[in-house]
Design a protein around this nucleic acid. Structure first.
Length: 907
RNA sequence: GGGCGAGUAGCUCAGUUGGCAGAGCAUUCGGCUUACAUCCGAAAGGUCACAGGUUCAAGUCCUGUCUCGCCCACCA
């Protein structure tokens, strides 16, 4: 084997083999139980970032382990058309050429986006492959595929017919830059420094009127009332009176509404129905008119009188100036309040009155909540269950129309005939029982249909126009787990692969996506689309900041793959991802995985190389009865490791599983077992040691494979090439996950090994302490037993292990030892080691050490003694705990005796 | 305002049903021992944020406090 592991070469090699062999294709006719994951589709415009890398690795670990465990696995990849985001990207590239989307027109523009998608949209999928994702690439889907688009229309029409989709005039979150509505969840709120302006509205007939506090003086042109709380005695008298709107001097009434809080500002608030959602509600309650003073681009309309045509933020300044001139600005306070921004372009969102389409969510949430209360789906970590449930409980209607071009066009047609002739509408929705009447809706002349009708079914007019809006991107995403399997067609895929097993995603999209998928799944398929939901943390930099381009702290996973390989990236990420906790990662973090890969490579090189050099024929594992202590011990240790990995994977504690593998391989297999193998070979040409080494290595490679697919695949295949492993599987990814083997797990060996290790460590420690160079072969005595421990050291080749591993020329194992002059010693659990140190020994130093040990021992003994005298403890603690304490105390007594003996010699 | 998470070694974090406090990195010391210096050996390092409580026994369970972070909400 090559001295240096080349991740690049090996990974490229296997990527090619995977591509050619399609190992990961799912078989719809398989009799095996299925295990399905659908990928959270990344934006088609996206490039792989570290968060994707984590998300993908988690899914791949789970799917690979399931595949090896004999399940019929399917992992469906795909991308999301990401309406606003993609449109923004293409618009930006147009802008570089000085073009705007309107210059092209809708059709040309969409053509352009498709072309862009074809050329650049595949990048992220290629990057997922580089990571080693074992998706069924044949089944790659895109949310704007024909099939998925059909699913979207089907869902829309179905919901509309059930009365769960309606159109209405509402205040929505409006992004004046994207000129589209946004759902509540698409707005990011942040607290910002601002001002609270106190403005006087003079009363009729020269009375002083009222003062209101507002953060948005520029909207005052749209005020149609002043509202106070009906219980507010300060204002009781003036409710019903009128005041003058500043600057425009229009008369507006003072009204009362319970939503107004007495304590805020002056207790009086201006009502601007078209530019504030609360004002809109109050206006509706009180039947007040509204005036639009800011248009869809954020420019003040002609209703704004002197400020018509001004941009909204400039208008704020000018309004304040005008108020000041008129003496109506009472005061200005510094004020912090939360400002909503478009999650795509960060423009401050404008509450804007417009006609939009909504999904009525409460009826959809109801059955979902029933299951949520039974912990279905099951969240990992469990705390997200509550977040999910609370959102479902307080759910609001979902604004699904977007005024952009890139996306699924609404399957809605307007019949000009019906609309002008003023006759009844076509396909009216039948409201579900118990749903409220549709407010602000006019269904007249609306035809909702999957395909464009030839003529209006109601009036026969052929003058039909399709709604120009497109659907929110999430309207296709929420169908993803079954639309990718062919829904609404009744496909075999759906029958076999649905519902999926687990959804792996980030906390940010529990509302956007997870909850909505759950609801739509129940609505359209009658089933929850996934059994489990794994929510992983956010990847942050070392200082805890989110990784973002603007901070310049992003780590590009592809760079990491280039430097250290995908395996190293994957293993490091998983190691840092404690369930649901955020990850703090720097560039250096990936040395963890790189070093581990290096270790695996080199250990394999030793084992395989040794067998080859010596021309050994190794044919599986020898009969366990013929094995020595160390050989049985490593089999037992592996079994412990295997159990722990299984347990942790099942509980979705992937980081723990990774840690167990790391610990076992490095510090048990390499540090101890392989060292003993070398000795066994050197001392007595023990072939069995190598056979066990290979056996354990091969099984270990299986366990690490889900985490590090490439290097394990490579080494496993080399084992096969050397004839050291018999397995018909064409790839480790298709091999069988290790199962328990009877007789391998022998916990009693752990204790024996502990004694051995302790003796070796003690001698190394003594040598270091007294400045004996590690290479200088020393002489030592181990005093142990009498009893089986003594026999163990005598019999099991332990003397050789101790001698070689601690650098001794001579070793005596005795049951009793009279301490010699100039001899240093070290306590063991069941004995002592002695090292003669002529010339290096310092009795005073020794005495200090012993006294310190004695003091520590005595405090500990005192504690245990107290505990063992405590009747409550004896009565209530489980017997094995009591027994353990007694044993500990006994050992300590022994050690105390030994130390005292030593001290008497040192005088 | 409500909810959630975190606080354990210098740093980043594990610690599952309560039962002898762990890892990686960094530090110190010693080693090129024919798999690996991306390595080997050893050491040092802890009032488990604080205060109470439950328990024979608390890093772990309960109550409260403090600090940091995140999410939600219609603070005009």
């Amino acid at each position: 084997m090559e001295k240096q592991y080349s991740a690049k070469e090996v990974e490229e090699k296997w990527l090619k083999i995977y591509r050619e062999n399609e190992f990961f294709r799912a078989d719809v006719d398989s009799p095996k139980k299925s295990f399905v994951i659908v990928i959270p589709p990344p934006n088609v415009t996206g490039v792989l970032h570290i968060g994707h890398a984590l998300n993908t690795t988690i899914q791949d670990v789970l799917i690979r382990q399931a595949r090896m465990s004999g399940l019929n696995t399917l992992w469906i990849p795909g991308t999301d058309h990401a309406g606003i985001a993609t449109q923004n990207v293409v618009e930006r590239s147009l802008l570089e050429k000085g073009q705007k989307r309107d210059d092209l027109g809708r059709d040309k523009f969409i053509e352009k986006v498709w072309r862009w998608k074809e050329e650049r949209g595949g990048t992220i999928i290629e990057q997922l492959k580089k990571l080693g994702a074992s998706c069924d690439w044949q089944r790659e889907r895109f949310t704007m595929d024909e099939g998925l688009s059909a699913a979207v229309s089907e869902a829309f029409v179905s919901l509309y017919q059930k009365g769960l989709i309606y159109r209405g005039n509402y205040i929505v979150n409006w992004c004046p830059r994207c000129t589209t509505a946004l759902a509540n969840e698409e707005v990011d709120h942040e607290t910002e420094e601002s001002h609270l302006y106190y403005i006087r509205y003079p009363g009729e007939g020269g009375t002083e009127g009222v003062v209101v506090a507002t953060t948005r003086p520029e909207t005052l042109f749209g005020d149609t009332a002043i509202a106070v709380n009906p219980k507010d005695i300060r204002y009781k008298k003036i409710v019903g009176k009128k005041v003058f709107l500043p600057i425009l001097n229009r008369l507006i009434p003072i009204v009362a509404h319970p939503m107004v809080e007495k304590g805020f500002g002056t207790g009086a608030v201006k009502i601007t129905p078209h530019h504030d959602p609360n004002d809109f509600k109050m206006a509706r309650d009180l039947n007040l008119p509204g005036i639009t003073v800011i248009d869809e681009k954020g420019i003040l309309t002609k209703e704004a009188g002197p400020l018509a045509g001004k941009e909204r933020f400039a208008a704020r300044e000018e309004t304040v100036a005008l108020l000041k001139e008129n003496g109506l600005l009472v005061k200005v306070e510094d004020y912090q309040h939360s400002v909503g921004r478009c999650y795509r372009c960060e423009t401050v969102v404008e509450p804007y009155l417009s006609k939009q389409w909504f999904v009525r969510m409460k009826p959809l949430a109801k059955p979902t909540l029933v299951l949520a209360k039974k912990n279905k789906p099951k969240f990992y970590p469990a705390r997200w269950q509550k977040v999910y449930r609370m959102w479902l409980e307080n759910i609001e209607d979902w604004c699904i129309s977007r005024q952009i071009w890139w996306g699924h066009r609404l399957p809605v047609y307007y019949c000009q005939g019906c609309l002008t002739k003023n006759v009844g509408a076509g396909l009216h929705p039948r409201p579900r029982e118990g749903t409220e009447p549709l407010p602000y809706t006019n269904e007249k002349g609306i035809i909702v249909s999957k395909t464009k009708p030839d003529k209006c079914p109601n009036c026969g007019s052929i003058n039909l126009t399709q709604d120009p809006d497109v659907l929110d991107t999430w309207f296709s995403s929420w169908l993803w787990p079954y639309s990718v399997l062919g829904w609404p067609e009744k496909t075999k895929d759906l029958e076999i692969f649905y519902p999926t097993k687990i959804l792996v995603t980030a906390p940010e999209i529990i509302f956007f996506w997870v909850a909505r998928m759950a609801m739509s799944g129940l609505e359209f398929t009658g089933k929850l689309p996934f059994e489990q939901v794994y929510i992983h943390g956010t990847v942050r930099d070392e200082t805890g900041r989110k990784m973002s381009k603007s901070y310049g702290n992003v780590i590009d996973p592809l760079e990491i793959i280039n430097e250290v390989g995908a395996d190293s990236l994957r293993f490091s990420l998983i190691s840092f991802a404690s369930q649901g906790q955020d990850l703090f990662i720097g560039r250096k973090s990936f040395t963890l995985g790189r070093n581990f890969a290096n270790k695996i490579w080199n250990a394999s090189r030793l084992v395989i190389g040794r067998v080859k050099e010596e021309g050994l024929k190794i044919d599986g594992l020898p009969d366990i009865a013929t094995l020595t202590f160390s050989q049985r011990w490593i089999l037992s240790e592996f079994e412990t490791c295997r159990r722990s990995v299984d347990k942790n994977l099942k509980a979705l504690r992937l980081n723990e599983a990774a840690a167990v593998l790391y610990q076992f391989f490095w510090h048990t297999y390499c540090d101890w077992y392989l060292e003993m193998v070398k000795i066994d070979w050197q001392e007595r040409k023990d072939k069995n040691s190598l056979a066990c080494a290979i056996f354990v290595l091969e099984r270990f490679l299986h366990l690490v494979h889900p985490f590090m697919p490439f290097i394990t695949e490579e080494i496993w295949n080399r084992l096969k090439e050397e004839g050291l492993v018999q397995d018909e599987a064409k790839s480790l990814s298709l091999a069988t996950w290790p199962q328990a083997i009877r007789g391998h797990h022998q916990p009693a060996l752990d204790f024996r090994f502990k004694l051995l290790k302790e003796a070796i460590t003690a001698i190394r420690d003594l040598k270091r302490e007294f400045g004996v160079p590690p290479t200088q072969l020393a002489k030592a005595t181990i005093c142990i037993g009498p009893g089986e421990e003594y026999t163990f050291f005598e019999k099991e080749n332990c003397q050789n292990y101790v001698k070689k591993l601690s650098g001794l020329a001579e070793l005596q194992i005795v049951t009793h030892h009279q301490r010699q002059d100039m001899e240093a010693n070290h306590l063991l659990t069941l004995g002592e080691v002695f090292l003669p140190l002529a010339g290096l020994f310092d009795p005073a130093k020794e005495r200090d050490k012993r006294n310190k040990e004695l003091a520590g021992l005595e405090t500990e003994m005192a504690k245990i003694t107290v505990r063992l005298k405590d009747r409550q403890f004896l009565k209530k603690a489980p017997p094995e705990v009591v027994k353990r304490e007694k044993e500990r105390l006994e050992l300590m007594y022994l050690n105390k005796k030994r130390i005292k003996e030593q001290l008497s010699f040192l005088k």
